[in-house]
């Protein structure tokens, strides 16, 4: 287990270093997410803006997330680095979790920056701990499925189109659960109404983390 974690962290360390040098993923994702929020802020009347805030948040985070995920394995394809990773004496799940944790970190960084800006522009209560939990659970779902499909799409000619086509139908349950749960939180709903959506997201995360880590080896092999 210690060795497994050590290697997952080595992949994460490598991805963070590369990202710090290029700022390829975080900057493009962040700019896109902020653009979506600002445009929607102008599109709706001020008194109705609060009603659509949760939809705007998840449109921004999911579409921006796809943008970042599509870059994730492009770096690995460069100079055959994916083959270099495959030559390492590790199972496919180590590579999967290393890349997944990297994608998750980048998406969470974007969410940390985007959320306060959304709250200010849409005049919403600044900090709700339940919302943090929703963002974390939904982002784990996105990263678990997105990492798998990003690896699959990187070998195709039209990877920019292929990734959203594969990704969105699968993550629909998480998007629905995240939008519904966020709506409950922002409208001051009860915890019992919220828990069902949290359970949906948690179940999705567990299922797709397990399934994706098991099938990842077959995806990268050919």
């Amino acid at each position: 287990m210690k060795k497994f974690l050590g290697k997952v962290l080595a992949i994460l360390w490598k991805d963070i270093l590369a990202e710090l040098r290029t700022r390829d993923i975080v900057v493009s994702v962040l700019v896109f997410a902020l653009l979506v929020i600002v445009i929607f802020n102008f599109a709706f009347e001020p008194e109705r803006v609060g009603l659509v805030a949760c939809g705007v948040l998840w449109v921004a985070l999911t579409f921006a997330g796809v943008l970042g995920l599509s870059r994730s394995f492009v770096l690995e394809k460069d100079k055959g680095c994916l083959e270099g990773l495959m030559l390492c004496p590790v199972d496919g799940d180590v590579i999967y979790f290393g890349k997944m944790v990297g994608n998750l970190s980048f998406m969470l960084i974007v969410a940390i920056i985007v959320l306060p800006i959304l709250f200010i522009l849409f005049n919403l209560p600044i900090f709700r701990p339940e919302l943090v939990l929703i963002v974390v659970l939904a982002t784990i779902g996105f990263a678990s499925v997105g990492t798998l499909f990003s690896a699959l799409a990187v070998n195709t000619k039209a990877r920019e189109i292929m990734l959203p086509m594969l990704f969105f139908p699968i993550v629909t349950p998480v998007i629905i659960a995240a939008v519904k749960a966020s709506g409950i939180v922002l409208q001051g709903g009860s915890l019992s109404n919220l828990s069902i959506w949290l359970q949906v997201m948690a179940a999705f995360d567990i299922i797709f983390l397990v399934v994706s880590s098991l099938v990842f080896q077959f995806i990268i092999e050919e």
Partner: peptide, 21 residues
């Protein structure tokens, strides 16, 4: 193909592969 990461230094590349092995 070199299997090396362009944006990492020579040391960082070797450290990464060393940890993996």
């Amino acid at each position: 193909q070199t299997f090396l990461y362009d944006n990492l230094t020579a040391l960082e590349n070797l450290k990464f592969y060393g940890r993996m092995y």
